[in-house]
Design a protein around this nucleic acid. Structure first.
Lengths: 227, 227
DNA sequence: CGTGGCCTTGATAAAGTTCAAGAGCCGTGG
DNA sequence: CCACGGCTCTTGAACTTTATCAAGGCCACG
């Protein structure tokens, strides 16, 4: 598949004229990253942004002691690392490939020129950033206002929703990573899953999770959740 | 002062041509809110966004039990409530005037038209949203990776920085509100301030805080902070 | 002078983390 | 084919941090 065609399938670039897609294809840098490889680190100078073409990327913050809080997990078609492009300054977090990934890099300057000429691209990008703010607001709410069971319940419901309300789910990430996403540690996550099992909210079998009591989970997620 | 001139002083609209400022003046709605009055609530339909002209506004999330997590406090010149304009959907949080405030409201549709014609405005808005993402990332880091003393230390250093490194600070918000901003409750904040006092990091006198040991606070903020 | 808002302090309880140990699983290489 | 080492995950016990509940102090304002 030619690179122009690939770029055309990226939602961010939806509605762009052919010639603009060609412009993008001209400036793009096509990169490969191995599992565990760093794409950028907090504090690095950000002179461009990225779009995942294949694979998965996690964006995360690290504490002094090494605990990690995952901010996002991005898959194919999703842009990341845009903040420094528009705010100046450096990357506010770290990015690492979770598996073998192909990543497109778009240099800042040419991209800004493109945005300048192209209102649709600007609006698309505004929509992307707005969605991201919305998600962050939800994450802040979870971290500050809910306890771990509530966050986990919310996450499971989110997964279920993404699968047309399926009750049989398969985690696409390791439990340790999920802990980092929920703002806790693997031990706590394990215990909370155990309690949910005790209360017949779910059944678990490795990465497979079977939701037994959707309503119960909803109550947990809404109330922030004591088990 | 005429409304066009006021609008011209808003950083978001910096660099706009005279005629575009006039366009804005045409579509703006000038509103007044009393202390404690709701500007919008989470879930409301967002068919426009706001800029504070005077006064102060807090953006916050509420938990089921009524605990509040403040996401932002905005003062004169700062825009808020833009997320629904670009992402569609509703407001992700609540907004309330903290004091008598004059607020400009810009209806969505005409504003989008303006963005479409005006790349500089688009880039300004992208910069605003990017800065906001950066701040959210920092808040998430604080909530998840630091303990209350670390967050408080970071906040005090931030205040100091905003005052050219001054060691004598005055909180511009009530301590109860500060607790909401730091993701804790007034009792805990009070105790942490007490401990910092015990350790000669600060002196307090009502809303006045005198930093005695800047370095000590920096260590606290970096390490996430056990006192 | 009393009332209400805001802040502080103490005792208690809950939630989460830490530390330590061990179970299960998987791919590699003998 | 099996044993080994390296992961990830689970479980338990002690400990830390923070929230909750309750009471009292301080201050401004009517």
């Amino acid at each position: 598949m030619k690179i122009t065609d690939l770029i055309g399938t990226i939602p961010l670039f939806e509605g762009l004229a052919e010639r603009h897609l060609d412009d993008l294809a001209m400036i793009v840098v096509d990169q490969k990253f191995a599992r565990g490889q760093t794409i950028f680190s907090e504090g690095d100078e950000g002179n461009g942004f990225y779009v995942a073409a294949s694979g998965r990327v996690k964006i995360f913050k690290l504490s002094w002691e090494g605990k990690e809080q995952i901010l996002h997990i991005f898959g194919p078609g999703e842009p990341f690392g845009e903040v420094p492009v528009f705010s100046g300054q450096n990357f506010p977090a770290n990015a690492e490939a979770m598996e073998e990934s192909r990543i497109f890099f778009f240099p800042r300057k040419s991209f800004i020129d493109l945005v300048r000429e192209n209102p649709d691209l600007a609006l698309n990008m505004l929509a992307v950033l707005s969605m991201r703010l919305r998600r962050f607001a939800a994450l802040i709410e979870d971290l500050s206002l809910k306890e771990v069971p509530g966050r986990l319940a919310a996450y499971l419901l989110y997964l279920s929703e993404r699968n047309e309300g399926a009750q049989r789910l398969e985690l696409e990430i390791a439990k340790g990573q999920l802990a980092g996403l929920l703002g806790t540690i693997p031990e706590t996550l394990s215990r909370v899953l155990g309690k949910m099992r005790d209360q017949a909210l779910i059944e678990t079998e490795g990465r497979r999770i079977h939701i037994l009591d959707m309503q119960g989970l909803e109550v947990l997620a809404e109330t922030g959740g004591r088990l």
